[in-house]
Amino acid sequence: MSADSDTHDTPPIDMTAWQGRVDPEPDSPRWHQCVQPWTAHATPGATLLGFASDAGVKRNQGRPGAADGPLAIRRALANLAWHRQGPAYDAGTVVCEGDALEDAQQRLGERVAETLDAGHFPVVLGGGHEIAFGSWQGLARHLEAQGSKAPRVGIINLDAHFDLRDPVHVRSSGTPFAQIVDQCEMHDWPFRYACLGVSRASNTRALFQRAEDLGVLVREDREFTAATFDAIVRDVERFVARCEHVYLTIDLDVLPAAEAPGVSAPAARGVSLALLEPLIEIIRDSGKLRLADIAELNPEHDIDSRTAKVAARLVHQLTLTG
Rank of each mutant, 00 (worst) to 15 (best):
C96S: 04
A42P: 05
Q146E: 12
S172P: 06
Q85N: 13
V94A: 08
P29I: 01
A52P: 01
S305N: 15
V310G: 07
E114N: 12
L207T: 05
A42K: 06
D230C: 06
A67P: 01
A100H: 14
E144L: 13
G92H: 09
P176M: 08
R284N: 10
G86P: 01
D163C: 02
A292R: 05
F239G: 07
D159R: 10
D285R: 13
E25R: 15
L101R: 02
A194H: 03
L318K: 08
I280N: 01
L276E: 10
S264C: 13
A267S: 15
V240A: 04
L275S: 11
L291E: 08
D188K: 13
L320F: 12
A100T: 09
D304I: 02
Q106N: 14
A3D: 15
I303Y: 11
G20A: 05
D285F: 00
D188N: 14
C96W: 02
R205F: 10
L143G: 04
G262V: 00
R242E: 15
A292V: 05
P70L: 00
A46R: 09
V310D: 05
D159Y: 04
D90G: 11
H32T: 10
R141P: 00
H187I: 02
K288F: 00
D285G: 10
P12N: 11
R219C: 09
L48I: 06
R222P: 00
L217S: 05
D68G: 14
W136C: 02
